[in-house]
Amino acid sequence: VTLFVALYDYEARTEDDLSAHKGEKFQILNSSEGDWWEARSLTTGETGYIPSNYVAPV
């Protein structure tokens, strides 16, 4: 399991995006899409895309 933590708040801009709150942890499901990674929030269980530069490894 690849875990990352949000460094900043991010507000989803499309229905495919996933909002993130600073300190929230995510499981990365797919990081092969360049700057946008598919992730699952460990807080809400929701999945979507987050900007890779907004997260760091735990």
Rank of each mutant, 00 (worst) to 15 (best):
R13K: 12
Y54N: 08
D16C: 15
Y54R: 08
D9N: 07
D17S: 12
E15P: 14
S19T: 10
A12K: 09
E11N: 08
W37R: 02
T43H: 10
N53C: 15
I50V: 06
S32P: 10
Y8K: 07
T2E: 13
E15D: 12
E46Q: 14
L18G: 01
Y10L: 06
N30E: 07
E15G: 13
V5P: 03
S32V: 10
Q27N: 05
E46M: 14
R13E: 11
V1C: 15
V5F: 10
N30Y: 07
K22R: 11
D17Y: 13
Q27A: 09
L29W: 05
S19I: 04
L42K: 04
L18N: 01
Y8S: 07
T47F: 07
W37A: 03
G48I: 05
E38G: 03
H21V: 13
T2V: 13
Y54A: 14
P51Q: 06
N30Q: 08
T43Y: 08
E24R: 00
F26M: 05
K25T: 12
W36L: 11
T2I: 14
G48T: 04
E11L: 09
L42V: 09
G23P: 00
E38M: 15
P51K: 07
K22H: 05
E24I: 03
R40P: 00
S31T: 13
E15K: 13
S19D: 08
Y54W: 08
E11G: 04
Y10E: 01
N53V: 09
V5H: 05
E46P: 01
E11H: 10
G48K: 02
K25Q: 12
L18E: 00
T2W: 11
L42P: 03
L42E: 07
I28N: 00
W36T: 06
A56E: 10
Y10C: 03
S52Q: 07
A56P: 03
T47W: 08
W36C: 12
I28E: 00
E38L: 15
S31M: 15
D17A: 13
K22E: 07
A39R: 00
A20T: 14
R40T: 11
V55M: 13
F4E: 03
F26E: 01
V1D: 14
V58S: 06
E46V: 09
L7R: 00
E46A: 13
S41F: 03
S52T: 06
W36R: 15
E11V: 13
G48S: 00
E33V: 11
S19R: 07
P51T: 02
R40E: 05
Y49Q: 07
L42Q: 06
V5N: 00
E24T: 01
S19F: 05
S32Q: 12
T44L: 01
G34S: 13
W36F: 12
S19K: 06
G45F: 07
R40G: 01
E15L: 11
E11T: 11
D35W: 09
V55Q: 00
T43D: 11
A20F: 15
Y8I: 07
A12F: 03
L42C: 15
S19Y: 05
E38H: 14
E38D: 04
H21R: 14
F4G: 07
T14S: 14
I28A: 02
Y10W: 15
Y10R: 03
G45I: 03
Y49K: 13
D16H: 15
A12L: 02
L18V: 07
W36A: 06
D35L: 12
S32C: 14
G45A: 04
R40N: 02
T2Q: 13
E38A: 07
E24A: 01
F4R: 04
K25G: 05
P51G: 04
A6V: 07
S31L: 09
A39N: 00
V1W: 13
F26S: 00
V58M: 10
S32L: 12
S32D: 11
G23A: 00
N53L: 09
A39M: 14
T44H: 03
G45L: 06
A56M: 10
L3P: 06
G34H: 11
T44N: 05
V58Q: 06
L18P: 00
A39K: 00
W37M: 07
R13G: 09
I50W: 02
K25H: 13
G23V: 00
G23F: 04
P51I: 03
I28W: 03
V1T: 13
A6K: 00
T2L: 13
V55Y: 02
D9R: 01
G34R: 12
D17E: 15
T2R: 12
F26L: 09
I50K: 01
Y8G: 06
S19P: 11
T43N: 09
F4P: 04
A56H: 08
E11W: 09
S52P: 06
E46C: 14
Y49P: 01
L7W: 04
S41H: 04
Y54E: 02
Y49E: 01
I50P: 01
K25V: 15
T14W: 12
E33R: 14
A20H: 04
G34W: 09
N53Y: 12
Y54T: 11
W37F: 09
Q27R: 08
D35S: 09
W37Q: 03
D16W: 15
E33S: 14
I50M: 03
G23N: 04
D16I: 12
P51F: 06
S52N: 06
I28C: 05
S31Q: 13
V1M: 13
T44K: 02
E33P: 10
T43E: 14
L3N: 06
F26H: 00
E46R: 15
Y54M: 15
D9L: 05
S41N: 10
P57W: 05
K22C: 10
D35H: 10
E11S: 08
S41D: 02
G34Q: 11
E33K: 14
R40I: 11
E11P: 06
F4M: 10
E33L: 14
K25M: 15
E24W: 04
V55P: 01
E38V: 15
G45Q: 05
S41P: 00
W37C: 05
G23E: 04
A39L: 08
E11D: 09
V58E: 09
F4S: 04
V55F: 14
Y49F: 12
R13S: 10
G45P: 00
A6Q: 02
Y10S: 01
T47Y: 07
L29H: 04
A56F: 08
K25E: 09
E33Q: 14
N53S: 14
